[in-house]
Amino acid sequence: MTALLEAKDLKKSYPEAEAVRGVSFAIPRGVCFGLLGPNGAGKTTTVEMLEGILAPSSGSVAYRGQALGPRFRQEAGMMFQSTALQDFLTVGETLDLFASFYAAARSRQELIERCALGEFLGRDTRRLSGGQRQRLLLAIALVNDPLVLFLDEPTTGLDPQSRRNFWDLAHRIKAEGKTLVLTTHYMEEAHELCDEIAIMDHGRIIAAGAPRDLLDRHFQESVLILPAAALEGRLRAEDGLAAHPRNGQTEIFTRDVNAAIQVLLQRGAPLDRLQVRTPTLEDLFLHLTGRELRH
């Protein structure tokens, strides 16, 4: 598949720090590409270089094989992590303002319906709730019916219901064949939306690929989870089970769930609160860096 957007050895240095230390990847058309990592990993700096908002210290970004230019501006939609809108304008006026910047704009009515803005079209943008504001920012990002849509931490600060609603919207946009570039530190968001991901840490990509492939590549185990108190002093070295404390619980990574449960039963561990799950991107990050994602 031809890359719609390609980053080559992107670097960004500031006098006080090196934010991005040589990042390369290609984003095929029609996929949702996720840039993941903890706060300060260099995700936003990288995506702002992709958006043409920030000039790289070195390296290049190509859109449809060419340097970013007027065509990219016409065909890209962007939703920044934090955006202020012009004061004293209503939701409808703000949409019209942004629509007027583009040669071709999506139908206003369709946009209003899709992002559920109808109820507060005449409301001052300063009087919107967090979820309403995110929907407006998404509508603005979609106003030109973009070929590629950048979503930078789109659900940060939203309540679970608003986040879920946002994901539904993103799924519908994906279904139209749009290319999405998503940055997030919510691994479940990446799981939900992304076809391909790149995990960043300290300004570098430490793993990249399809989420399932990455997990399969790094884990053959399943994870058993028990309350920390349930295993206290029960396991022995010869049991072959390594227990890892995490978030007040104990996790055991094992390739043979049945055998592991047998051992736990033999050691008299209470299993009434036992959970079994497959490894997640959170586990992958911990596995690759030795650190929790949200620390």
Partner: peptide, 16 residues
Amino acid sequence: RYRKNGVLKRLRATPL
């Protein structure tokens, strides 16, 4: 004020 609160950044992302 626009530069500080990000309005300019958002406008820069358009063909304006």
